[in-house]
């Protein structure tokens, strides 16, 4: 019953986003060109780097491309499914329209997370998949079905981590209005996820492992596809994703409570 209810809600909201996107059909072309542009842009440092070296921190060009492809895919999902909704919430909080969301008899986190999609960003994801295929052609082998399955599961876990972090950032908007800048901050840190995590050392390693677990978002799913991830590490990723999701939910609820006790 509850599940069916939320499935229906999701369908209605997704349809509204699609209808909106259809009104701006020219964006399809613009988005396609932009996707291509950034795809090429992303490759520049990779090409410069591997022009001089065969491997960097044990990663060959092909393997690094697999990580890059994951980055492009995850970034596409982030920009297409997560940022628009959460950006909309921050806007709603500022304009006061968020009050209407709170007065609807459905989970507020669900309502805001599905409020807006940018369907054209699917082109980014498509570009990422293309890059992924190219990377494996270059590597000269295809992932086994088991590796593919593990890769998808870990990709799901990575997306859950990312979504959790973003929810926590949005929750801060209840306390500090105009903190949408924090979303930019996280987006810009996320840019580092285009590189295999093991390339970084020292301070970066600590930050990218414990503060913002970028490795979980792109490197581990990529390694699962490449068949270089252990069972223990895989399970570690899943546990990490679960933990981040739980913490995000708690932070959200806390923020909501403070919103309804302190704002006007």
């Amino acid at each position: 019953m509850r599940l069916g209810y939320y499935a229906r809600l999701f369908a209605v909201q997704a349809r509204a986003s699609l209808t909106t996107a259809m009104q701006y059909r020219a964006d399809f072309l613009v988005q396609g060109l932009t996707s291509l542009y950034w795809l090429g842009w992303n490759l520049v440092p990779l090409l410069v780097l591997y022009d001089d070296r065969a491997t960097v921190a044990g990663w060959s060009f092909g393997a690094a491309l697999v990580v890059m492809a994951h980055f492009v895919i995850v970034r596409g999902i982030l920009e297409g499914a997560i940022n628009p909704s959460l950006g909309a919430v921050v806007e709603q909080i500022r304009s006061g329209a968020f009050d209407y969301t709170l007065l609807r008899p459905a989970d507020a986190q669900f309502l805001v997370s599905t409020a807006r999609f940018a369907p054209w960003r699917a082109l980014d994801v498509l570009g990422g998949v293309g890059l992924l295929i190219y990377a494996f052609v270059r590597l000269g082998h295809a992932p086994s079905p088991a590796q593919l399955g593990a890769g998808l599961v870990l990709l799901g876990a990575g997306l859950a981590v990312m979504y959790g972090l973003w929810i926590m950032i949005v929750a801060t908007a209840f306390w500090v209005v105009r903190m949408d800048n924090l979303i930019y901050l996280l987006s810009s840190v996320f840019d580092a996820a285009r590189w295999p995590a093991s390339v970084f050392r020292g301070v970066w390693k600590v930050v990218f492992t414990f503060v913002i677990p970028l490795a979980l978002m792109t490197t581990f799913p990529a390694r699962a596809l490449l068949g270089t991830v252990t069972w223990q590490a895989g399970i570690g990723c899943l546990v990490g994703a679960l933990l981040v999701s739980i913490v995000a939910r708690l932070v959200w609820r806390l923020a909501l409570r403070s919103y309804t006790s302190a704002s006007s």
């Binding site: 440092p45 580092a192 390339v199 970084f200 020292g202």
Partner: peptide, 8 residues
Amino acid sequence: VMLGLWTS
């Protein structure tokens, strides 16, 4: 980030 990469 680029600093981290290139120093490695």
